[in-house]
Write a protein that binds this DNA or RNA. Sequence first.
DNA 1: CATGTCTATTTATATGATTAAAATGAATTG
DNA 2: CAATTCATTTTAATCATATAAATAGACATG
Lengths: 242, 242
Amino acid sequence: MSSETDDLRGGLGRNLTYGLLEHLGRQIVTGAFAETPFPTEADLSEEHGVSRSVTREAVKMLTAKGLLTARPRQGTSVQPVANWNLFDADVLRWLLERKFSPELLRQFNELRAAIEPAAAALAAQTADARGLALIEAGFARMVAAEAGDDDGLNADIAFHLAILRASGNPFFAQFRDVVATALRTSIRFTNRIVGRTADLAAHGAVKDAICAGDPARAHAAMTAIIGDVMTVIATEQAHHHA
Amino acid sequence: MSSETDDLRGGLGRNLTYGLLEHLGRQIVTGAFAETPFPTEADLSEEHGVSRSVTREAVKMLTAKGLLTARPRQGTSVQPVANWNLFDADVLRWLLERKFSPELLRQFNELRAAIEPAAAALAAQTADARGLALIEAGFARMVAAEAGDDDGLNADIAFHLAILRASGNPFFAQFRDVVATALRTSIRFTNRIVGRTADLAAHGAVKDAICAGDPARAHAAMTAIIGDVMTVIATEQAHHHA
DNA sequence: CATGTCTATTTATATGATTAAAATGAATTG
DNA sequence: CAATTCATTTTAATCATATAAATAGACATG
């Protein structure tokens, strides 16, 4: 086993294929092949010290995620960014790890501003007992976190994901990765949990509106939360520029 | 070349791997493996008359799309629906081809109701000359379609996609597949272009608001369009039940 | 000038062998 | 009896090599 393959095993991948997937995925989103053409599968295999099977299977996965395309004789090449599946958890993670970007964080939250209030309104209309229970459990964790008995970030994430799920719409539920990522990144950027006690009250308002079956109030309350986040991001970004 | 492989070539796939991808993708979303376990790669290869390479690469692509997971000794198995990447164009298409579902159409449009007004508002704030030109071109096509000089469905799709792109947010732009699919499906369901002349006026209102740089009006106008679609779907669905 | 043919390159496919991971259940041990 | 260890066995993971298919580009041909 060569040292190159050890690198691949060391990555997030449980095995060589997933290791190579991670490595290539990161390289692609960092623009490593913007100028130079993407290597042939023979070159890739040799460079990373793995068999052609491993290379081909990693390339196929990247193709499935929209990052690559392969044709005989023409070779393999990177697809335009518009074709990348940004809602794929791996792609999202690679984009984020590549470099920290306030721009990307803003775009995340523009999406949240569109999705989460709508999800909250739907939840208020249609959530079942189990859905409501999860929302309340998430909020309870946030209260506990305030007292230092739980991790604030993960409590916050659990709360928002519970609402997405309670919307009863699988398309909304898909945004869990984006939302979780956005929240984690917000923390890294602002280096603190946005808002704190004011934030806790705002979350409580969302919870109450959903439990009361009031879609309009749930929508408004969630809009307020994300509006606060946007404000913090904007001011923080201004500080950076100053 | 056996007859099984001919089937795979005949599908949407340009080659055996993509043919098998299509075949398995459709089988999975139709619940063909809900009771019976997913076959081992040896069985799959034999059953479809292809080599293990082809099988493994197709399985890897399905894994990348969230439909499958594979582990030694345990075998390959179908993932819970919550893990499927619904925003993948292939997965979306398979879900739709499986059987027509008014329920899915409604969920599509709930998502549209959250996304598109927000995208229109962003476009009104930030669209550049090229973005505006594409929106106007899309609207011009709809006008031409009214006179019978263009295809109404594709003109409608072009208009909505232009707005998503003009939002300047790559996450919003990702929804082109969902929106295009929702529009195509709406047509198939209602068997006509929703609204016609009234619809054309509504689209014109969105275009004007964006060109005027008025986010609130753009948001409201787009909300109205999708509200109309939802109404048509609901009444049509009621007819079916009657 | 257009059109067909040949050639080289690259992915696509096939096959067989070996290795590694993980669950099962038997054997062992306290 | 309960827990733990360990060999067995099943399956995917990996490697290596050979052949097929596709196509861009050069070249020839009418």
